[in-house]
Structures are given as structure tokens and as C-alpha cells.
Amino acid sequence: MDLLGIMLAILGAAMAAGWAGAGSAIGVGIAGESGAGVMTEDPGKFGLVLLLQALPGTQGIYGLLIAFFAILKVGLLGGGAEITVSVWQGLGIFFACLPIAVGGFFSAIAQGKTSAACIQMIAKRPEETGKAVILPAMVETYAVLALLMSIILLNGISL
């Protein structure tokens, strides 16, 4: 039974890194498809397209971040002393990982679609790059909020 707590924490970390990463992969993929289309016409837009394609990639990083926080918390990294994690504490860590897992997954996909549309926009109006970068960032707000909540929740669980 004393292992179950740690395992739940690991499940949380796995969900955070896995789902947020999967969302980012889908989002970056969607944006990349659109970017490749634009570059067949104008390969010179590579820089701008890459910038916009990278935007939905941050959720994966946020997920990884929370995953590291979670396993650091239960002492799986860094070779410190062993920490006993009760089932309830483990469950708490698992729940704390959920905001970024769920929020990251869906927001990255939505952001990927917005990025794709903005890539189409700069294909026609390269002078509006500023606005094209801001629109996907509007979506990312909610990933940032999810990240924030995960951090605060993890921080609030005392072992």
C-alpha cells in the first residue's frame, strides 16, 4: 500500500507530460501543415512560419514542467532521502497534475488551429505579423492559467 501513493503521483506526472505533449504535437502539426502549404508559394516566409508553428509547442513544455515538479516532490529525482507518500497525498498530486494535462491537451490543439489560420493570414499580409502572433497567444492564456493552477495545487500539498 505504501507504494500506491508514489504510483499515483507518477500517474499524475505521466498524464501531465503525456497529454500536454500530445496536444502540442497535434497543434504544432496542424500549424506545420498550413505552413508547408504557404511555403510552397513563398519559401522566404520560413522564419515567420516557424515562429507561428512554434507557438502551440509551449503546452508540452508546461506539461513536462509539472511532471518534473510532481516527481521531484515525491523524491524520485535528485537522489535525496526517501519520502513516504500516503495514498491521499499521492491522489492529491495526481489531481494537481490534471489542469495542465487536460488544459494543455485541448488548448494546444485549439492554438494549433489558430496558428494555422494566422499562417494563412501572413501569407497574404506579411506586414500584419504582429497581430498574427497575438491571436494564438490569446488561446495560450488558458494553458498558462492551467499551468498556474497545477503549480499552486502542487505547492499546496504538504508531504
Binding site: I61, Y62, L65, F68, F69, V144, L145, L147
Partner: peptide
């Protein structure tokens, strides 16, 4: 609140 979240993200990465 993104100021905190992004700042933390940088140091954590």
C-alpha cells in the same frame, strides 16, 4: 498571473 507562470516556467526548464 501569466507573469508568475512564465517566470516560473523559465526557471523550472
Amino acid at each position: 498571473s501569466r507573469l508568475l507562470a512564465l517566470g516560473l516556467a523559465t526557471s523550472a526548464v
